[in-house]
């Protein structure tokens, strides 16, 4: 299992992997926003957390379709399916590796982009914390989409379409937790706890469903 984790990590960090592209895409999306809404700093600092969250959501969907498709193309998926270790664990570890390679860099890059959006320290800290808690959920949901679309020749776009509606709760609670932290009256903890609950929930549901879909889509 640890071997699988490090192998996937190596694959995404090496040339052609998703890490750099994900972070670059994240930066580009966030950098485009001021061109769209204008350079008004007050406005930017107000919508900043939401923009960072949307950018992170889109960026973490970016490489997800390759999660199982790359394994299928070179035949590795067959061997992964055949092992004594439960497929559930294999999927879970693959998700964890994918998150560590693509989700974690987004979290680390977010403070820098927060400065661009004229956010204060509290808002940047809260955004980083919610991204840290919320992006794994997106990866776990995305694994279901990736597993469902694994056999499709052009599954990439379909994965995003299937996954985005399911990822909406994560976005809602992530953003509302950040705003709760900035605006005084609303408490920060309830939405944050729900965000973590969603992540834990999908950490169970995602691998179960993805494993089922992979078993059934084998041909």
């Amino acid at each position: 299992m640890i071997a699988l984790f490090f192998r996937d990590l190596k694959l995404s960090v090496r040339a052609g992997g998703g890490t750099m592209i994900g972070v670059l895409f994240f930066m580009t999306v966030v950098a485009v926003v001021p061109f769209g809404v204008g350079p008004d700093l007050n406005l930017l600092s107000r919508i900043g957390p939401a923009m960072l969250w949307i950018g992170a959501l889109l960026a973490s969907l970016l490489g997800l379709d390759r999660l199982f498709q790359a394994e299928r193309e070179d035949g590795s998926l067959d061997l992964l399916l055949m092992q004594e270790t439960p497929l559930l664990m294999t999927v879970f570890v693959k998700c964890a590796a994918h998150w560590a390679a693509t989700g974690l860099p987004l979290v680390i890059a977010s403070p820098l982009l927060g400065l661009f959006m004229n956010m204060n320290e509290l808002a940047i800290g809260a955004t980083m914390l919610t991204l840290l808690a919320g992006t794994p959920a997106i990866t776990f949901i995305g694994a279901v989409g990736a597993a469902v679309a694994v056999a499709l020749p052009r599954g990439g776009l379909l994965v995003s379409i299937l996954v985005l509606p399911l990822a909406i709760p994560v976005l809602i609670f992530g953003v509302s937790a950040v705003y709760a932290a900035i605006e005084d009256p609303a408490p920060f903890l309830p939405p944050f706890m729900i965000l973590m609950a969603i992540t834990l929930f999908f950490a169970v549901i995602g691998p179960v469903a993805a494993a089922a879909a992979l078993r059934h889509s084998a041909d």
């Binding site: 949901i141 279901v144 989409g145 597993a147 469902v148 056999a151 299937l162 399911l166 549901i205 469903a209 089922a212 879909a213 059934h216 889509s217 041909d219």
Partner: peptide
């Protein structure tokens, strides 16, 4: 195949 796979998605 599409039936079983989309059934998983329906349940999720």
């Amino acid at each position: 195949r599409s039936a079983r796979v989309s059934a998983v998605l329906v349940l999720v």
